[in-house]
Design a protein around this nucleic acid. Structure first.
Length: 439
RNA sequence: GUGGAUGUAGUUCAGUUGGUAGAGCACCAGAUUGUGGUUCUGGUUGUCGCGGGUUCAAACCCCGUCAUCCACCCCA
């Protein structure tokens, strides 16, 4: 009379049925191919690390959200809550084994013990890609171009990347004498898309003086086009156009964007600041044209010193992170997810158990042509076997009974149109199958 | 973490002022023992999220708990 254990999963953790996992894998594979085509290489790191490594950044909020416990040996350990901190440790640990500039991508699960919402879970998949070891505008540009092209490649459609530069914002804050309140100001400004300029004015007014509030609001409001926006930002921040300045960096990027005719995709938006404080250069967030309300599906920026906590020599880099689960939720809502129940192209029906070997030989032959073939495992009524094929979304069936076996022929059936092609040689049948599948 | 809403068969939902649960779809079997999407007949589906309490009696009322959704926070 043992009690039955409920097959439940933890809050914010999920099982994936095949019709969800198959498109998820497809999406990941498409991204991997995309990164590879730009020369980025994959890495991985442990999901469990020493707590002191993961929590070293000391952000109060991340500390609270990190899953942390003592392992069987009494070690203070934690599950990774992003892929950036492990990457910093990884770079410091393997500094001499990496060729610089190092371009990597990393796709993996991360964990955060925060409250759940739609498209927001405690276990979720992140996809990071970064270039480290160079502070060039070329790298900044490449990362943003990869984001736009990558999202297009996975069927997310056109995107708008809104970017800005922390350097100019910091100059402005310095000029206004607000360096001490940088974090608070950034957090308020970051909300403008959500709460509007009016609310931001009120919140800023509570934090800084009236004049400063108006200057900040003026700064973060984009002008008609990228050039005008930059002009205004530079003027308000008292920027001097010299080598290595934030202003020149933005100019360089805008020049390239214009030459590539991408000013729809890349928009200079000074209200983009990103809450995280390790960004020092460009910062950006990406929205789907077809669903801006989903929020940013890919964001990041340039950091001046990724590895500061783990080694003395500073390493600069620029990178972005895609929220795969949020993106999946958006794509599903847009009807862009193909909920395939299997990847099988052709089902070989079982009409006679004595023909087991024949069925497996047929399946093997089909696989050599690149077709995914499976043999139905029981000699059940044909109706049941067809139903199985339908449930798994299998488009073709190969039917061989004792008569066909003796005659040396096979019957192929297109399960979609219900058209049968009987008495074919195996050669003709697989030719026909490839034709129907369009392969 | 804070506040609010919700939780009934695989699924979508119904269930009247508390009287020990119902429909469509899905599923299974048969009409149709080598060709399945229609039709017909029959059938199964439930610890009413879980655990307590009030009551002669709880899906319904009360408390707790777990989960989902929404807002805040933060972010992906």
């Amino acid at each position: 009379m043992a009690g039955i254990i409920q097959p439940k999963v933890l809050k914010g953790f999920r099982d994936f049925l095949p019709q969800m996992e198959i498109p998820r894998r497809k999406l990941i594979r498409a991204l991997e191919d995309h990164f590879t085509s730009y020369g980025y290489v994959p890495i991985d790191t442990p999901v469990l690390e020493y707590a002191e490594v993961l929590l070293s950044k000391g952000g109060g909020e991340t500390d609270k959200q990190t899953y942390r416990f003592n392992d069987h040996g009494g070690r203070d350990v934690a599950l990774r809550f992003d892929l950036t901190v492990p990457f910093a440790r990884y770079v410091a640990a393997h500094r001499n084994e990496l060729s610089i500039p190092f371009k990597r991508y990393h796709i993996g699960k991360v964990w955060r013990g925060e409250n759940t919402q739609r498209g927001r879970y405690r276990e979720f998949m992140q996809c990071d890609f970064d270039v480290i070891g160079t502070d060039s505008a070329a790298a900044d540009l490449e990362i943003m171009l990869m984001m736009a092209a990558g999202l297009r490649a996975i069927g997310a459609g056109e995107t708008r990347i809104r970017f800005s530069h922390r350097g100019l914002f910091n100059q402005l804050l310095e000029k206004l004498g607000l360096e001490g309140k940088t974090a608070e100001v950034l957090r308020i400004v970051d909300k403008i898309g959500k709460i509007g300029a009016g609310e931001v004015r009120i919140l800023l007014g509570e934090l800084v003086g009236k004049e400063e509030t108006e200057t900040l609001l003026d700064f973060i409001t984009p002008a008609e086009d990228n050039r005008e926006t930059l002009k205004k930002m530079a003027a308000l921040a008292w920027s001097e156009e010299k080598d290595g300045s934030a202003e020149v960096r933005i100019k360089t990027i805008l020049d390239a964007v214009e030459k590539m005719q991408l000013h729809h995709n890349l928009v200079l938006d000074p209200s983009i600041t990103r809450g995280l404080d390790y960004y020092t250069g460009i910062v950006f967030e990406t929205f789907l044209d077809d669903m801006p309300s989903l929020g940013s599906v890919c964001s990041g920026g340039r950091y001046g010193n990724l590895t500061g906590l783990f080694m003395k020599e500073p390493v600069s880099g620029v990178g972005a992170s895609i929220g795969l689960d949020r993106l999946m939720a958006g794509l599903e809502e847009l009807g862009r997810i193909d909920n395939a129940a299997s990847g099988t192209d052709i089902l070989i029906l079982m009409l006679d158990e004595a023909l087991l070997a024949r069925y497996q030989i047929l399946a093997h032959g089909l696989r050599q042509d690149g077709l995914a073939a499976e043999v139905y495992p029981e000699n059940r009524k044909l109706g049941a076997q067809f139903k199985y094929a339908e449930a798994k979304g299998i488009p073709l069936a190969l039917i061989v009974g004792s008569e066909e076996n003796e005659a040396g022929t096979v019957n192929l059936k297109d399960l979609g149109s219900r058209e049968s092609f009987n008495g074919l040689s195996f050669e003709d049948a697989r030719g026909k199958a490839l034709e129907i599948l369009g392969k």
